[in-house]
Nucleic acid binder design. Structure first.
Length: 602
RNA sequence: CGGGAUGUAGCGCAGCUUGGUAGCGCACUUCGUUCGGGACGAAGGGGUCGCAGGUUCGAAUCCUGUCAUCCCGACCA
């Protein structure tokens, strides 16, 4: 491609709309333009990158026996109602774009495709002889993100590869899951990215085991905890660990003490000169279930620990049936204004005890449940002579013990947040480290959640009708492209890994008025292209400096300059990543680049 | 949805406090000089100042409303 004929517009300054390096660079280098919040036009250079990523994904998927297809983006509400996700995905904080057509039919734009694919499976899979089966597609997804950000990292429209597998049993599912684990590792390795596979929460999509593939970068939105021996790595949402041991309490006698102005654990520990591990903390939440019920939740946990909202939400989901629901739609720490609606009398905030009475609550409407759902984190179970609130502002109790002053809440759960510095479960000598990651891939063992909901069954050898076991597997294709930039750039611009660079080489003519430079460049361009090397020719009537700056900015791996060494029959060849330059004879350029590219593609 | 900020030419910004009919840099067009790390000179083109009301003789500027965008949080297969 000749740059003189390409839509090639680079910017000298960073666009104000971008915050992180990769976002700024993709805009500056002319790879994309924002069309609406979280919606981007993929311009020719970026489209080539996306094509390369897609092709690598396709090759690795096909190698596992998965088959490519294309499912509709416009999906009927009925399917989502059958799976029970229509409400959670369109109401409250739902992420699904929903619309009504002229016949008054409710439709949604696909944020994911479990429902559609399961409906297809229901219609087409009859027998165990057809299994296992794995279908995937690469296409645009729509999600009405509350706050789109960071360009392609969190858009409302983005390209994703999503695959769905169907099995006779969990064992077969596990095999495909392992295949995907390997395929995803291959994809990221081939794309030239540093990544880590971590245990993950399966979130709203449901299912049992899931693994996230995290591209490591400081701008990542997720926190990863891992052990240095490489045995354990998990998203902080999912991570488990051993908390530090509690310091034995210095208080031996139960008493109520004046503790003015100590609404936080830190201030209380300071005033009493005690360890936060001796304090029992009580955190108030309000959970909203899909049945419409609003339930006040009191989480009691050791003072030095934080509540992991994802784990809490999972625990609450298990209890949804008690409130006539199946899912948690919202989970909030209520502010004073929100509390006022359902408090019979003011709560002593910061001084709440584990035994705080239900008489603080009233029911402003039939949906509010005026009874605390009391959950006890396991870190607080074994504490003795602990410090906690007294239900009186300005006073705490010390020396309290379960079974004496306070009833031990019956529901014991694990909702503590693991943190860097905690010891790992597999080896208490290992300490968790922290890193930021960008979630690029996520693989799930779904089980039969969707097949049961939608009635997708097969007949086994014994003639019994059984729900299909399912897995699903996603890769953020457009997100991966930007993550690659986030992981590989310098002050001059993008440094693409060779495997996903839009072009592999760029031939720069420093001075268009020098006929020999032009002739040599044209010949090289033709030779390189003929040799199968994807090459750009910068034949624009610009000064050399502009061309070098642009070549660096757009990040083409190899640059060939038909410049001053031409008089010796040589051209300069520069590696973008390292800046290494060497002079090569004209006829050595093609074989040398072929070697470099082959080496880079492994 | 809570908190914060910003909307002025394709991009980055000034002007607003103190109202008088819009400016700078980059980019773009033409000509000349230059030609290996974002050249120089000259001459040009391009803006309903986000939108809608209001105040005023007069509004980019003051007031009200509204929309959009970005940041922090909440949220997020």
């Amino acid at each position: 491609m000749r740059l003189s004929q390409m839509l090639f517009v680079t910017l000298r300054e960073d666009p104000a709309e971008a915050e992180i390096p990769s976002h700024k660079l993709l805009l500056r280098a002319g790879y994309m333009r924002r069309v609406a919040s979280g919606v981007y036009a993929y311009l020719p250079l970026l489209w080539r990158v996306l094509g390369k990523v897609s092709e690598i994904v396709r090759q690795e998927m096909n190698a596992t026996g998965a088959q490519e297809c294309l499912l509709p983006q416009l999906q009927p509400a009925e399917l989502w109602q059958e799976s029970g996700r229509w409400e959670t995905y369109t109401k409250a904080e739902g992420i699904m774009f929903a619309l009504t057509d002229r016949r008054d039919q409710a439709l949604g734009l696909g944020p994911t495709h479990e429902e559609v694919i399961t409906a297809i499976a229901r219609d087409m899979i009859r027998s165990y002889r057809q299994l296992p089966l794995h279908l995937y597609q690469i296409q645009t997804k729509f999600r009405d993100e509350i706050r789109p950000r960071f360009g392609l990292m969190r858009g409302r429209e983005f390209i994703m590869k999503d695959g769905y597998s169907f099995h006779t049993d969990a064992e077969s599912l596990k095999e495909t899951y392992q295949d995907m684990y390997a395929a995803y590792s291959n994809i990221l390795r081939r794309c030239g990215l540093a990544f880590r596979a971590v245990e993950a929460d399966s979130g709203a999509i449901g299912g049992s085991g899931s693994t996230e593939f995290m591209v490591l970068a400081d701008a990542g939105e997720d926190e990863v905890l891992y052990s240095e021996d490489g045995q354990y790595a998990a998203n902080v949402e999912k991570a488990v660990s051993l908390p530090v041991d509690a310091v034995p309490s210095e208080f031996s006698e139960y008493q109520v003490l004046d503790t003015p102005n100590t609404p936080t654990i830190e201030s209380l520990a300071q005033l009493l000169s005690c360890s936060p591990t001796q304090i029992v903390k009580n955190v108030l939440y309000v959970a909203g279930f899909d049945s419409g019920k609003q339930v006040p939740v009191l989480v009691t946990i050791r003072g030095d620990q934080d509540v992991n909202d994802v784990k809490l939400q999972n625990e609450l989901t298990k209890l949804a049936a008690d409130y006539g629901g199946t899912a948690v739609l919202s989970l909030e720490v209520p502010d004073a204004e929100a509390q006022a609606a359902w408090l019979a009398k003011p709560l002593p905030l910061g001084y709440i005890s584990p035994g705080v009475g239900d008489d603080y609550l009233k029911a402003p409407n039939k949906d509010f449940v005026p009874k605390f759902l009391r959950l006890l984190d396991q870190t607080a179970v074994d504490l003795e002579n602990f410090v906690t609130g007294s239900d009186q502002t300005g006073r705490h109790v010390v020396g309290a013990t379960w079974g004496k002053q306070f009833t031990l809440p019956q529901r014991v759960v694990d909702v503590r947040k693991a943190a860097a510095g905690d010891r790992t479960l597999h080896d208490p000598n290992q300490v968790l480290q922290t890193a930021r990651g960008i979630e690029i891939g996520h693989i799930f063992q779904l089980g039969s959640k969707y097949s049961q909901a939608l009635g997708a069954t097969y007949t086994n050898e014994a003639g019994q009708e059984i729900p299909l076991e399912m897995g699903c597997y996603g890769v953020g294709v457009s997100r991966l492209a930007q993550a690659a930039v986030e992981q590989s750039y310098d002050k001059n611009g993008i440094i693409w890994p060779v495997a996903i660079a839009p072009y592999q080489a760029i031939v720069v003519i420093p001075n268009l008025n020098a006929a020999d430079q032009v002739a040599a460049a044209e010949q090289l361009y033709a030779d390189l292209t003929a040799a199968g090397i994807e090459t750009l020719l910068d034949d624009r009537n610009e000064r050399a400096g502009v061309k070098f700056k642009d070549a660096d900015l757009i990040g083409i791996p190899f640059r060939i300059v038909t410049g001053r060494s031409l008089k010796d029959g040589k051209v300069e060849v520069v590696k973008r990543a390292t800046g290494e330059a060497e002079e090569l004879a004209l006829d050595a350029v093609v074989p040398t680049l072929q070697g470099w590219i082959a080496e880079a593609l492994g």
